Amino acid sequence: MGKIYSLSDAISKFVHDGDHLVFGGFTTNRKPYAAVYEILRQGQKDFIGESGPAGGDWDMLIGEGRVKAFNNCYIANSGFTNVCRRFRKAVEAGELLVEDYSQDVLMLQLHAASLGLPYLPVRLMMGSDLVDKWGISKEERQKIDKLPNDKFVIQDDPFHPGHKVVLCPVPEIDTAIIHVQTASPDGTCRIIGDEFHDVDIAVAAKHCVVTCEEIISDEEIRKDPTKNSIPGFCVDAVVLAPYGAHPSQCYGLYDYDKKLFQDYDKASKTDEDFKSFLDEWVYGVKDHEEYLNKLGAVRLSKLKAVPGFGYSVDMTKEGK
């Protein structure tokens, strides 16, 4: 019906080796973990990663050696790990090509991609070593087709003589993967709370896979279009995946899983513990449904967001 896929089929069809890949969400907020786990299970690799503030989603792919180059501004499970440990290890070992942009510039690059612009002119980053240092050399860039030849180009501002502007490349995204609260079979998506860069990447990408907490009818989602965020024509696949952002939070529905983030922080310190963590939570379950069964109903119910707070609170303790 419409664009509805199973998670396995959506990832198999729209995620390929070497893709320029980008995820929605923000560090521990609405990250598409169910889809990331399925990518890990299926084995796709050699990604060019493009990410605003990233978290364990990209850290796991990097730790498993699935990422060839990574354009990023920040990667951490905020509140649990200051800098994601597998990312840090890969960079320090020289196993990952990384280019560093400021957060504002990277988010604007994704917006520029949604507008179809050939490049992004900014004054941001000037005065910092972000315009003095390249993480990926020009020589390395020429070896990878999906990387721009330059980190940036500085030129005279044609409208303001004597001033300079930084021309930043605009990413050409193969596939965007986003988790939302509600979607319909035709691909229309409803995001509650901060949209982050999700709308931009859905518009910009050649293909967009959406996982969602619930699917409602096309007729129902059209009743109040003011609540809708992403038009159906931007979306290729809709996947029903309740708790598909776990262990990150999904605004209005459930909070982040503190224990799992703490466990991952400890496990990601060593190669052996990292492998054991993935063996238990990713490779040791065949699909998202089995993952939820392993977590258990009681654990998931305790993450439920309380209306009026927006996050998980034990209301039986209120007033005591």
Rank of each mutant, 00 (worst) to 15 (best):
F159P: 00
H160N: 14
P161Q: 11
K164A: 13
V165F: 03
V166T: 14
C168I: 05
V170P: 04
V170S: 08
P171H: 07
P171S: 03
E172C: 09
E172M: 10
E172R: 15
E172N: 15
I173D: 06
I173E: 03
I173R: 07
A176P: 04
H179R: 04
H179M: 10
Q181D: 04
T182E: 11
T182C: 11
S184Q: 00
G187T: 00
G187Y: 06
T188I: 04
T188A: 05
T188H: 01
C189N: 00
C189E: 01
C189D: 02
R190A: 08
I191W: 08
I192Y: 13
G193S: 03
E195L: 11
E195F: 12
F196I: 01
F196R: 15
D198N: 15
D198Q: 13
D200Q: 13
D200F: 15
V203P: 09
V203S: 12
V203A: 14
V203F: 12
A204I: 06
A205W: 10
K206N: 14
H207C: 03
H207Y: 09
V210M: 07
T211F: 04
T211L: 08
C212H: 01
E214M: 11
E214K: 15
E214W: 03
I216M: 09
S217C: 03
E219P: 00
E219I: 07
I221A: 05
R222I: 00
R222V: 02
K223V: 12
P225Y: 08
K227S: 10
N228T: 14
S229T: 14
G232I: 06
F233D: 15
F233H: 14
C234N: 13
C234A: 15
V235K: 07
D236C: 02
A237H: 07
V238F: 11
V239G: 11
V239L: 10
L240N: 01
L240R: 09
A241L: 06
A241W: 05
Y243S: 03
G244D: 06
H246E: 00
H246I: 03
Q249P: 00
Q249R: 15
Y251A: 15
G252L: 05
L253G: 07
Y254L: 08
D255S: 12
Y256N: 05
L260K: 05
L260Q: 06
L260A: 02
F261G: 00
